[in-house]
Nucleic acid binder design. Structure first.
Lengths: 357, 357
DNA sequence: TTGTATGCGTTATCAA
DNA sequence: TTGATAACGCATACAA
């Protein structure tokens, strides 16, 4: 009946080695012994556990506790470094509460019914690729979910809202009562608009992300509102999936259309801006002398391109932290703290005075 | 004794609803009833399960089975889209075998003892950030680990090799018997070298990643070997952390050093190449007329910069697939398939004939 | 073909 | 202070 040496030591093994009951082991190792176990036996237990290299079996603990202290962070599959930051922030907060964070890059699923033929065409042939949605048995394996809006629709469509849910960058009103944590992107767009208006720009092209997500609709609305507030402004919109090449093509088309040319291109994110750069170069337009460009995100990409991109910095880590804090609040029955996360315009070399101003 | 309506249905609830034993439910839902349960009862069970919205409790199953059918994929924290591809491939293969993949972005930990003051300085202040290593109780929660070499050292240092382990892009000989899956990066570097040599380049600067990882040492060695094979070649080396700004600074320093200027810059990866571009622009050098540049990875970044970067395409998804397949083999007691994954030079606009050739 | 019984490793309740 | 003992929900060996 001796413990096979090839198998993981259990708390019973520790108990046996320490000469105490198995319950005592659980108490000591769970740090719940303040006055229920003598200091000497506690130490003996710890010693035995250390000697045996004991580590608790999570499956058993989860089963017993009915909770896993694990949350899922759903991010778009085609992820950028931005979500690495979000993860870092969320995981850090989680850790201080004894929680873990599991990352789920939502496959393709960007918004409901958004086939995006360009995405389907490029790259290797699609193999039958049923990466299983993690919600199949998630309720047993997870305590909650934090989901980026770029995947949130797909998420609610499938399942997932059965669990305590926090949505990132999602419509505060349309989220079915789920808590939301948002960057103040509208304010970022406002800063961009004011910056360009101050430089004399009156005719701008909005290069919008072709993703039916609240966050992008909000950007479009804010930009339109800000420009509309100033007499004599004109706004044109082009739409493209968030890839450099799609953005290039869309920009090229938009700028070769008849009529006066915009003096600034406002992009929904940095990647789109990189595509816009390429289009402008092909058209023989110089940035910022002939035309200004702005992005949004402040990825590494923003300083990789030339000239460096004027963009809006998003604090990804803070975003992740706030997301996790909100989820902890929900799990706790408390109301999550409100208030959007501030963002900041970073002026670099891609914006300058309007050509005709 | 009726099931509280607020609690998750268990297999017993399903059994009760279907009027069968709990064991029958388990058999049917586990698809192990081929001749042990009648078709009619099986259908009744399925119906009841569907009606109740039953989903098995993973913790209980894991406890019973002693395995979780979950593996961990360890990637560098400062991750790029490359690892999104690796994940996709690994998850796809895993799915066909009933496995799940959990992502672990290894915090900072790039190689052993590599403080990288620049990393520590930039960005927000470091908060006490104990993102727990997932190996604390991993043996119970995971069946195996796939680790990128960029985190593998940190990994073995901590724990992790107690579990079946596959290393990605790691020294096949120094990996303590762990299985390795490698891209044929040496061949990629060879292709780069041949390409440049054919263009007449004889003096090259190697912009190397400042990461003490096997994969980067291998790149340096291969490049040196290929150049040494041709008489009259010269190789200089500069080193930088993989950030655009560090790469820019290192390149600038290297190229303003006294002596003849290299006619080509070979970079350990695309991000470094983006930094090199910036340095060259500051120095008033045109790419590729004055100097050629090559990268390695073929990230989106490679086509974002101007001119588009000649680089080596890595098939991230295939990499992930092969990694997962290797791990499945190890779990199965089989020998993982050998053979490096082919890579391919993609010639774009950043390379041209040597200035003085 | 079906149902009964047992144990996976924990934590927590209760008597000693 | 301590040590039995009972679940948690599932899969399976075994008995009916």
């Amino acid at each position: 009946m001796a413990r096979s040496s090839s198998t993981r030591p259990t708390s019973r093994d520790v108990a046996q080695a320490a000469g105490v009951s198995q319950a005592a082991v659980s108490l000591v190792l769970g740090d719940k012994w303040r006055g229920r176990v003598s200091e000497t036996t506690a130490e003996r237990v710890r010693e035995a556990a250390r000697a045996l290299g004991y580590r608790p079996n999570l499956a058993a603990r989860n089963l017993r506790l009915g909770s896993t202290r694990t949350v899922l962070l759903v991010v778009p599959a085609l992820t950028t470094e931005f979500f690495a930051g979000v993860y870092t922030g969320a995981a850090r907060v989680a850790a201080t509460h004894g929680f873990g964070v599991v990352l789920y890059p939502s496959p393709e699923g960007v918004g409901p019914a958004h086939p995006s033929p360009t995405t389907a065409l490029k790259g290797r042939p699609l193999r039958a690729a049923p990466i299983p949605d993690p919600f199949a048995s998630a309720e047993a394996a997870l305590d909650g979910v934090i989901a980026s809006s770029m995947a949130a629709d797909a998420l609610t469509a499938i399942r997932g809202d059965q669990l305590p849910l926090v949505m990132l960058d999602s419509d505060p009103h349309g989220s079915l009562g789920a808590a939301t944590v948002n960057l103040d992107i509208a304010d970022g767009v406002r800063q961009v608009a004011e910056h360009l208006l101050a430089l004399g720009h009156r005719h701008v092209l909005h290069l919008a992300a072709d993703i039916p997500s609240w966050t992008f609709r909000a950007r479009a609305r804010e930009l339109a509102d800000r420009l509309a507030a100033v007499p004599g402004t004109r706004l044109r919109t082009a739409t493209a999936p968030i890839t450099i090449d799609d953005a290039r093509a869309a920009t090229e088309t938009a700028l070769t259309a008849p009529g006066p040319r915009p003096t600034a291109v406002v992009c929904d994110d940095d990647k789109l801006a990189a595509g816009a750069y390429k289009a402008l170069r092909r058209l023989g337009l110089r940035v910022p002398d002939d035309i200004s460009v702005t992005g949004l995100d402040d990825l590494a990409l923003a300083t990789a391109i030339d000239p460096e991109l004027t963009t809006v910095r998003l604090d990804a880590e803070l975003f992740g932290e706030r997301g996790m804090e909100a989820l902890l609040a929900v799990l706790d029955g408390r109301a999550p703290a409100g208030g959007d996360i501030p963002v900041q315009l970073v002026v670099r070399g891609s914006t300058g005075p309007a050509r005709d101003a």
